[in-house]
Amino acid sequence: MTERPSPNQSASEARRVVDPMTQLEVLVPPDITDERAIEHARKERNGELHRIRFFVDWGHNYPLWESFTDKYVMEPDDYGISLQIGQRLNEWSRFWQQHFDPFDGWDTQENKGFWLTTGDELVRLLEIEVYDIAVVLPQFRQGE
């Protein structure tokens, strides 16, 4: 069997479920049932899941992007994301805009570390929240 890990999880946070169609092991977030994991794998194989690109950019309130859509710049309501997670996504994006300069970089290493750690946590929370409809592609660490 070949493992197809989620880019958002470490092996210690997830368990493995075998997709009965492909016989590939998939890493499954905590609290996701085997049935949901298998259905998620089916939807992914068939191209039925949204692919949420997770990164920040100037002038945008949320780190949610989806290529090949009419909208591209997405918001929590587009995916049915809870108010609590939506607020945290907005705060995380604002933190970046307040503490990162495109020419000079981060104002402190502590702020950079906090932002990266929080981003990893938000990706995991988002992945669980949208598990039945989307795959989350963390792209916020590129060029860190």
Rank of each mutant, 00 (worst) to 15 (best):
Q9V: 07
Q9M: 13
A11N: 06
A11K: 11
A11H: 08
E13I: 00
A14Y: 03
R16L: 06
R16G: 00
V17E: 05
V17R: 01
V18H: 00
V18L: 02
V18S: 01
V18Y: 00
V18F: 00
D19A: 03
D19S: 04
D19G: 04
P20E: 13
L24P: 02
L24R: 13
E25Y: 05
E25T: 04
L27N: 01
P30C: 01
D31A: 04
I32E: 06
T33Y: 03
D34C: 04
D34Q: 07
D34M: 01
I38F: 00
I38M: 10
E39H: 07
H40W: 13
A41Y: 02
R42G: 01
K43R: 10
K43W: 02
K43L: 06
E44M: 06
R45V: 03
G47K: 05
E48I: 13
E48H: 08
L49A: 05
L49W: 11
L49P: 09
R53T: 11
F55S: 06
G59T: 08
G59N: 09
H60W: 15
H60P: 02
H60K: 11
Y62H: 14
Y62I: 05
P63Q: 07
L64D: 05
W65F: 11
S67G: 14
F68N: 09
F68H: 12
F68C: 06
F68M: 10
D70S: 10
Y72D: 03
V73T: 10
M74G: 00
M74S: 02
E75Q: 12
D77V: 07
D78R: 05
Y79M: 04
G80M: 02
L83Q: 12
Q84P: 02
Q84V: 15
I85E: 01
Q87C: 09
R88Y: 11
L89P: 11
N90E: 15
E91M: 08
W92K: 08
S93D: 12
R94F: 15
R94W: 14
F95L: 13
W96G: 11
W96L: 12
Q98A: 12
H99V: 13
F100N: 11
F100Y: 15
F100D: 08
F103K: 14
D104P: 00
W106I: 15
D107S: 08
D107R: 13
T108M: 13
Q109N: 13
Q109I: 15
N111D: 15
K112T: 05
F114P: 10
F114Y: 15
L116Y: 00
G119W: 00
G119D: 10
D120G: 05
L126Y: 03
E127L: 12
E127V: 08
I128W: 07
I128G: 02
I128H: 07
I128S: 06
E129V: 10
E129L: 11
V130Y: 09
V130M: 08
V130K: 09
